[in-house]
Amino acid sequence: MENHGGPIDGSIVTVPPGFTKDAVIEAIANGIKLLVIVTERIPRGDVAGMVEFADLHDARIIGPNCLGLIVPEVCKMGGIGGPAKDAAKSYKPGVVGVMSRSGGMTTEISSSLTAAGLGVSTAVSIGGDAIIGSTYAELMPYFEADEQTQAIVIYTEPGGRMEAQLAEWKQENNSRLPIVAFMAGKFMDDDEMQGMSFGHAGTIVEGKEDSAKEKIVRLEAADIKVVERIDEIPEAVKERIAK
C-alpha cells in the first residue's frame, strides 16, 4: 500500500468467474469504492451478491463482462479503447457521456464523437449480462452532476429492461441532459430469429421483455432520440445540444 502515490480507491477485477465474488468482496471490505469487473460468465447469483454487498458499503460496481471506463486524458480503468496509445486516438476530452452494453462499441461510438469534434466526458462500458452493477439509469445521476457533460449517448441491444428503466428515470427526473440512443440487433425481432423464449413466471416480474421495436418506442416516448444509423450519432447529439 505505501508504495502507491495516493490511497487506493479503485479496483479492476479480472480473476476467473469462480473467484470473482471473493475478490470483489475482499476489495470492498477493504474500503475500495469503485470496482470494474471484466470477468465474464459469472453466475447471476454471484453478481447479485456482489452488488448487494457493494450497496451496503456505498461502493459501485461497473460490469461484469465489460471493458471498464475512461475519462479521456484523466484516467482509464480496464481495457477500454485498447492500449493507452490507441485509446488516446479514439477518446478526446469533450462534452458527451457514453454508456454502452458492448465494450467494443463504446470505442467505435466515442471515436466518431471525437472525430466530429464533440469529444467524450466519460465513457462507460457497462457490461452485457442480465444483471450488472450499474445500469444506464443508475449512472445518470453522476453524469447529471458532471458539469463537463452536456449530452448522453447510449448503445443498446435486445434483451432486458434497462432501456425502460432509463426512460422512466428520464421522465421522472427532468434531466438537463439530452439522450441519443443507438439500438443494435434489430434483426433479432424477426420471426426466423426467435430462439428460446423465457418462462412465464419471468415475464410477470418485469413485464414482457421488450423487442427492439418496443424498446425504441419506449425510449422515444421519453424524448430520447433513437438514431437509425450508427454514423448519425454525432449529428443527432449536436442537434440536441443546440436545442
Binding site: 470505442t107 467505435e108 443494435a184 440487433g185 434489430k186 434483426f187
Partner: peptide
C-alpha cells in the same frame, strides 16, 4: 472482427 460490431453491422447490411 469481434468487438461487438456484429449486431450493428448485420442491421446495417439489412437496412
Amino acid at each position: 472482427g469481434a468487438g461487438g460490431g456484429s449486431l450493428t453491422l448485420t442491421d446495417a447490411v439489412r437496412n
